[in-house]
């Protein structure tokens, strides 16, 4: 079986967010780029499945410009076998899914993250599943191979559900799918340099959405501090002033 892991390249989670061009573009100067945390966990689970046997190859794919290659190399360094970069700017989920659909067809299992931590789209995985007419499961916190089927755990309100589903499958993963992401070792980094990173040119596609402006959230009023001895007053304030109790 072959697994494809979709990799989104995002600013480090502690990045200070700024904009340029009259608040129309994200200011990426000085930003550290990482593998989207969900995708990193998805890749980790794919590697575990391969180590357990039954998986022949793990490919990682990204739609992005040349600058995302460092992120793909990191994915290779932790153990992916090869990488595909589709050489275009990723702005809109529909466009990104259109590009990924071109390379995704041969994989029995595709793993996507629930959302990319930059634009929080919650979109690419589900869109790709529909374009390929694959089965899909969302909010996945566990996945195992079960013969030609998959045994998948998904979060539901107030708990979880274990389901059985046939392939080809697109699983949209979230917390719990793997415990800790893998850190690349020196040997892995050396080997990654020799692994194939294929570059595909994009097919024609359109953006169905476009960000026209960014804003920073309005500054919050200062916190009202109450002494520990008067703790009860907080409840009174919540009741009478904030009116949320």
């Amino acid at each position: 079986m072959k697994i494809l892991v979709l990799i989104s390249n995002v600013p480090d989670t502690t990045t200070k967010i700024r904009f340029t061009g009259n608040n129309t573009a994200f200011d990426d100067s000085g930003v550290q780029w990482i593998i989207n945390p969900w995708d990193e966990l998805a890749l980790t689970r794919a590697l575990e499945l391969k180590e357990a046997g039954g998986v022949d190859k793990i490919t990682v794919a990204n739609v992005g410009e040349k600058s995302t290659e460092a992120t793909l190399r990191k994915a290779l360094a932790v153990g992916a076998d090869d990488a595909i970069r589709i050489n275009t700017t990723a702005n809109d989920a529909f466009y990104v899914a259109t590009q990924l659909a071109e390379v995704a067809k041969d994989y029995e299992l595709i793993l996507a993250g629930i959302e990319a931590s930059d634009y929080n789209g919650n979109a690419v995985g589900g869109m790709l599943a529909e374009m390929l007419d694959y089965n899909s499961v969302s909010a996945v916190s566990g996945i195992d191979l079960d013969g030609s089927d998959f045994k998948v755990t998904r979060e539901v309100d107030g708990g979880y559900q274990v389901v059985s589903i046939g392939g080809p499958l697109l699983a949209i993963v979230q917390k719990g799918i793997a415990k800790e992401p893998r850190i690349p070792a020196m040997r892995g980094i050396m080997m990654a340099r020799k692994k194939p990173l294929n570059i595909n040119e994009p097919v024609e596609g359109i953006d169905k959405t476009q960000i026209i402006k960014f804003e920073l959230p309005p500054p919050k009023a200062a916190c009202k501090l109450i002494d520990e001895e008067n703790a009860k007053e907080v409840i009174t304030l919540l009741h009478e002033e904030a009116k949320v109790l």
Binding site: I17, Y119, N120, T209, Q210, I211, I212, F214, E215, P217
Partner: peptide, 19 residues
């Protein structure tokens, strides 16, 4: 055009849907 949170609530974006 709708508003949504981006960058895990660190910013807000106005997004236009063209379809």
């Amino acid at each position: 055009v709708v508003k949504k949170k981006v960058f895990t609530s660190k910013a807000i974006a106005n997004v236009q849907i063209n379809s």
